[in-house]
Protein backbone atom coordinates (compact mmCIF):
# COMPACT_ATOMS: atom_id res chain seq x y z
CA UNK A 1 0.00 0.00 0.00
CA UNK A 2 2.66 2.47 1.06
CA UNK A 3 4.76 1.29 -1.84
CA UNK A 4 1.93 1.91 -4.32
CA UNK A 5 1.10 5.32 -2.92
CA UNK A 6 4.73 6.40 -2.92
CA UNK A 7 5.20 5.21 -6.50
CA UNK A 8 2.08 7.07 -7.63
CA UNK A 9 3.12 10.25 -5.91
CA UNK A 10 6.53 10.08 -7.53
CA UNK A 11 5.00 9.41 -10.94
CA UNK A 12 2.70 12.42 -10.58
CA UNK A 13 5.61 14.51 -9.48
CA UNK A 14 7.56 13.59 -12.60
CA UNK A 15 4.86 13.16 -15.24
CA UNK A 16 2.70 16.23 -14.62
CA UNK A 17 5.31 18.95 -14.96
CA UNK A 18 7.14 17.26 -17.81
CA UNK A 19 3.99 16.54 -19.79
CA UNK A 20 2.69 20.04 -19.11
CA UNK A 21 5.85 21.78 -20.20
CA UNK A 22 6.14 19.67 -23.33
CA UNK A 23 2.47 19.69 -24.35
CA UNK A 24 3.08 22.66 -26.64
CA UNK A 25 6.63 21.89 -27.67
CA UNK A 26 7.01 20.32 -31.10
CA UNK A 27 9.99 17.99 -31.39
CA UNK A 28 10.70 17.48 -27.69
CA UNK A 29 7.09 16.43 -27.19
CA UNK A 30 7.26 13.80 -29.92
CA UNK A 31 10.44 12.40 -28.42
CA UNK A 32 8.95 12.28 -24.94
CA UNK A 33 5.72 10.64 -26.05
CA UNK A 34 7.67 8.21 -28.22
CA UNK A 35 9.80 7.18 -25.27
CA UNK A 36 6.71 6.72 -23.14
CA UNK A 37 4.96 4.69 -25.80
CA UNK A 38 7.96 2.38 -25.97
CA UNK A 39 8.20 2.09 -22.21
CA UNK A 40 4.57 1.13 -22.13
CA UNK A 41 4.98 -2.10 -24.07
CA UNK A 42 7.55 -3.51 -21.63
CA UNK A 43 5.63 -5.80 -19.27
CA UNK A 44 5.69 -4.86 -15.62
CA UNK A 45 7.35 -8.12 -14.63
CA UNK A 46 10.17 -7.36 -17.03
CA UNK A 47 10.63 -3.94 -15.50
CA UNK A 48 10.83 -5.51 -12.08
CA UNK A 49 13.27 -8.11 -13.29
CA UNK A 50 15.40 -5.41 -14.88
CA UNK A 51 15.61 -3.63 -11.54
CA UNK A 52 17.22 -6.62 -9.86
CA UNK A 53 20.69 -6.35 -11.38
CA UNK A 54 20.50 -2.55 -11.30
CA UNK A 55 19.39 -1.73 -7.77
CA UNK A 56 19.11 -5.16 -6.13
CA UNK A 57 16.14 -6.25 -4.11
CA UNK A 58 13.86 -4.65 -1.57
CA UNK A 59 11.71 -1.51 -1.43
CA UNK A 60 13.81 0.76 -3.65
CA UNK A 61 13.76 -1.26 -6.88
CA UNK A 62 10.06 -1.98 -6.52
CA UNK A 63 9.43 1.69 -5.95
CA UNK A 64 11.39 2.69 -9.05
CA UNK A 65 9.71 0.04 -11.18
CA UNK A 66 6.21 0.98 -10.11
CA UNK A 67 6.93 4.67 -10.62
CA UNK A 68 8.08 3.95 -14.16
CA UNK A 69 4.90 1.98 -14.66
CA UNK A 70 2.67 4.79 -13.45
CA UNK A 71 4.23 7.55 -15.55
CA UNK A 72 2.86 6.68 -19.02
CA UNK A 73 -0.88 6.83 -18.35
CA UNK A 74 -0.52 10.04 -16.38
CA UNK A 75 1.79 11.65 -18.93
CA UNK A 76 -0.30 10.67 -21.93
CA UNK A 77 -3.55 11.91 -20.43
CA UNK A 78 -2.00 15.14 -19.26
CA UNK A 79 -0.77 15.75 -22.78
CA UNK A 80 -4.17 14.85 -24.24
CA UNK A 81 -6.03 17.04 -21.77
CA UNK A 82 -3.87 20.11 -22.24
CA UNK A 83 -3.82 19.85 -26.00
CA UNK A 84 -7.57 19.35 -26.03
CA UNK A 85 -8.11 22.95 -24.89
CA UNK A 86 -9.68 24.64 -27.94
CA UNK A 87 -7.34 27.04 -29.76
CA UNK A 88 -10.04 29.73 -29.84
CA UNK A 89 -10.34 29.62 -26.06
CA UNK A 90 -6.60 30.13 -25.60
CA UNK A 91 -6.58 32.85 -28.26
CA UNK A 92 -9.39 34.67 -26.47
CA UNK A 93 -7.61 34.28 -23.13
CA UNK A 94 -4.48 35.81 -24.59
CA UNK A 95 -6.41 38.60 -26.29
CA UNK A 96 -8.12 39.48 -23.02
CA UNK A 97 -4.76 39.97 -21.37
CA UNK A 98 -4.08 36.79 -19.42
CA UNK A 99 -0.42 35.93 -18.95
CA UNK A 100 0.79 32.46 -19.97
CA UNK A 101 0.76 31.51 -16.32
CA UNK A 102 -2.81 32.71 -15.84
CA UNK A 103 -3.92 30.84 -18.95
CA UNK A 104 -2.39 27.68 -17.53
CA UNK A 105 -3.96 28.11 -14.12
CA UNK A 106 -7.40 29.39 -15.09
CA UNK A 107 -7.97 27.84 -18.49
CA UNK A 108 -5.68 24.93 -19.40
CA UNK A 109 -5.66 22.98 -16.14
CA UNK A 110 -9.35 23.33 -15.27
CA UNK A 111 -10.27 22.14 -18.75
CA UNK A 112 -7.70 19.32 -18.79
CA UNK A 113 -8.33 18.11 -15.25
CA UNK A 114 -11.01 15.48 -15.92
CA UNK A 115 -8.80 13.79 -18.53
CA UNK A 116 -5.67 14.05 -16.40
CA UNK A 117 -7.59 12.52 -13.55
CA UNK A 118 -8.73 9.52 -15.52
CA UNK A 119 -5.06 8.93 -16.36
CA UNK A 120 -4.23 8.97 -12.67
CA UNK A 121 -6.97 6.44 -12.12
CA UNK A 122 -5.58 4.08 -14.74
CA UNK A 123 -2.11 4.45 -13.23
CA UNK A 124 -3.42 3.66 -9.75
CA UNK A 125 -5.03 0.42 -10.82
CA UNK A 126 -1.97 -0.65 -12.76
CA UNK A 127 0.31 0.12 -9.83
CA UNK A 128 -1.78 -1.74 -7.27
CA UNK A 129 -2.05 -4.77 -9.50
CA UNK A 130 1.66 -4.79 -10.29
CA UNK A 131 2.69 -4.14 -6.71
CA UNK A 132 1.87 -7.79 -6.17
CA UNK A 133 4.73 -8.71 -8.42
CA UNK A 134 7.02 -6.59 -6.33
CA UNK A 135 6.82 -9.39 -3.80
CA UNK A 136 9.14 -11.33 -6.11
CA UNK A 137 11.93 -8.87 -5.53
CA UNK A 138 11.25 -8.38 -1.85
CA UNK A 139 9.06 -5.32 -2.04
CA UNK A 140 6.80 -6.57 0.72
CA UNK A 141 3.04 -6.10 1.01
CA UNK A 142 0.23 -8.30 -0.15
CA UNK A 143 2.44 -9.52 -2.97
CA UNK A 144 4.74 -11.26 -0.54
CA UNK A 145 1.75 -13.00 0.94
CA UNK A 146 0.71 -14.29 -2.48
CA UNK A 147 4.17 -15.36 -3.44
CA UNK A 148 4.83 -17.20 -0.20
CA UNK A 149 1.57 -19.05 -0.68
CA UNK A 150 2.59 -19.86 -4.22
CA UNK A 151 5.92 -21.20 -3.06
CA UNK A 152 4.36 -23.29 -0.30
CA UNK A 153 1.61 -24.43 -2.66
CA UNK A 154 -1.03 -23.17 -0.21
CA UNK A 155 -4.11 -22.75 -2.41
CA UNK A 156 -6.47 -21.06 0.13
CA UNK A 157 -3.82 -18.59 1.21
CA UNK A 158 -3.02 -17.82 -2.42
CA UNK A 159 -6.64 -17.12 -3.24
CA UNK A 160 -6.98 -14.97 -0.17
CA UNK A 161 -4.03 -12.85 -1.24
CA UNK A 162 -5.17 -12.57 -4.83
CA UNK A 163 -8.67 -11.63 -3.80
CA UNK A 164 -7.17 -9.00 -1.50
CA UNK A 165 -5.22 -7.45 -4.36
CA UNK A 166 -8.23 -7.50 -6.64
CA UNK A 167 -10.40 -5.93 -3.96
CA UNK A 168 -7.86 -3.22 -3.35
CA UNK A 169 -7.54 -2.37 -7.04
CA UNK A 170 -11.30 -2.35 -7.47
CA UNK A 171 -11.80 -0.19 -4.41
CA UNK A 172 -9.22 2.31 -5.58
CA UNK A 173 -10.72 2.39 -9.04
CA UNK A 174 -14.31 2.98 -7.96
CA UNK A 175 -13.44 5.60 -5.38
CA UNK A 176 -11.28 7.46 -7.89
CA UNK A 177 -14.02 7.19 -10.49
CA UNK A 178 -16.43 8.76 -8.02
CA UNK A 179 -13.94 11.51 -7.29
CA UNK A 180 -13.46 12.06 -11.03
CA UNK A 181 -17.19 12.51 -11.56
CA UNK A 182 -17.39 15.02 -8.77
CA UNK A 183 -14.40 16.88 -10.23
CA UNK A 184 -15.97 17.04 -13.65
CA UNK A 185 -19.17 18.23 -12.05
CA UNK A 186 -17.71 21.11 -10.08
CA UNK A 187 -15.45 22.11 -12.93
CA UNK A 188 -18.20 22.20 -15.48
CA UNK A 189 -20.80 23.91 -13.29
CA UNK A 190 -20.58 27.52 -12.20
CA UNK A 191 -19.73 27.51 -8.52
Amino acid sequence: MILSAAALAAALFIALPVAASLARAGLARSAWLGAIGTARVIPSLAVLALMLPLIGIGFAPSFVALTLLAIPPIAINTDLGLRGVPAAVREAARGLGMSEQQIGLRVDWPLALPIVFSGVRTATVEVIASATLAGFIGGGGLGEYVINALAANQMPQLLEGAAGVAMLALLADTSLAALERCFAYTEMRPA
Partner: peptide, 9 residues
Protein backbone atom coordinates in the same frame (compact mmCIF):
# COMPACT_ATOMS: atom_id res chain seq x y z
CA UNK B 1 -13.10 36.68 -32.67
CA UNK B 2 -15.28 34.62 -34.96
CA UNK B 3 -14.90 31.45 -32.88
CA UNK B 4 -15.89 33.51 -29.80
CA UNK B 5 -13.73 31.40 -27.46
CA UNK B 6 -15.85 31.62 -24.33
CA UNK B 7 -14.38 29.68 -21.40
CA UNK B 8 -16.49 26.51 -21.44
CA UNK B 9 -16.08 25.81 -17.72
Amino acid sequence: IQAVGLFPH
